[in-house]
Write a protein that binds this DNA or RNA. Structure first.
Lengths: 144, 144
DNA sequence: TATTGTTATACTCTATAACTATA
DNA sequence: TATAGTTATAGAGTATAACAATA
């Protein structure tokens, strides 16, 4: 298979186009990608340490301290002390933070649904049929 | 169809995961998304005005002036005057800019190809079969 | 006057280095 | 000493407002 016909080279422009489209939207709260990632992680996994958030979201530790500070000032997260280890700060998402996640998610979903509505029904079916495989592909990103 | 089962709500997490994965890569040159978008556009469409780049990439005009300035200092684009209209600046990509596009593209493609290599062959086939439909879906983002 | 682009200024986001507090 | 986190500082990136040059 020639390089320019590889599966990755075919999928990349599709991803790039969809992502650029979503990025250029004026979503209601307009959280930064990393901020949304942190909120979603806290929602999924519960209270977490600064150090762990920094590692998992691939930012520096000071960067995460500052992001958490901004999120806290915005009322989206709370910081609490760890009872076992006085050095540790535990960050948890607030109800307001969860509401922001829900609004942003709903907005992105509605935008994608509008794209599907403009598409040929046969194409829609083909994509829907491929979603489980795409989910497994996306799952591979966590594996390695 | 219930909201949480809509096509958009199924596609969104897949997109989010793949995009987060690609964004967190340490690509060789690490261009910003907008910078890469401008370079790719110039490569595709030839010399362009600041105003047009700003509109098409959805940045402010001063923002585009500044981005083009950074790209110029990095040797990735050239600015030339328009012979017909003395107000206009034409921006064009350099060979070095094209090389950066190629390196970045190759890196992303190789990363995606590695994901496919870890996937069940049947899933790969399903995704490849859906690529034309996905391309048309992505194309709808430009339509309206 | 309208259009093209730049400069001035400020804010967000992120990084590295140096620091404090706890283990 | 090592670890968790913060503070200090700087740079990239982007916005709005005010400006200069050309049409």
């Amino acid at each position: 298979m020639v390089a320019d016909e590889s599966r990755g080279s075919q999928l990349l422009p599709v991803l790039a186009q969809l992502v650029r489209f979503l990025r250029q939207l004026d979503s209601p709260d307009n959280p930064s990608p990393v901020a949304l990632g942190v909120l979603r992680r806290l929602d999924r996994e519960g209270p977490s340490r600064i150090t762990d958030l920094a590692r998992l979201e691939r930012t520096s530790q000071p960067g995460m301290t500052q992001l958490v500070g901004r999120l806290e000032r915005a009322g989206l997260v709370l910081r609490t002390a760890d009872a076992q280890d006085g050095r540790v700060v535990l960050v948890e998402v607030t109800e307001e933070g969860r509401a922001l996640i829900a609004r942003t998610h709903a907005y992105y979903v509605a935008t994608l649904d509008k794209l599907f509505d403009r598409l040929d029904p046969a194409d829609c079916e083909t994509i829907v049929a491929a979603l489980p495989a795409l989910e497994r592909l996306a799952g591979e990103t966590a594996a390695g």
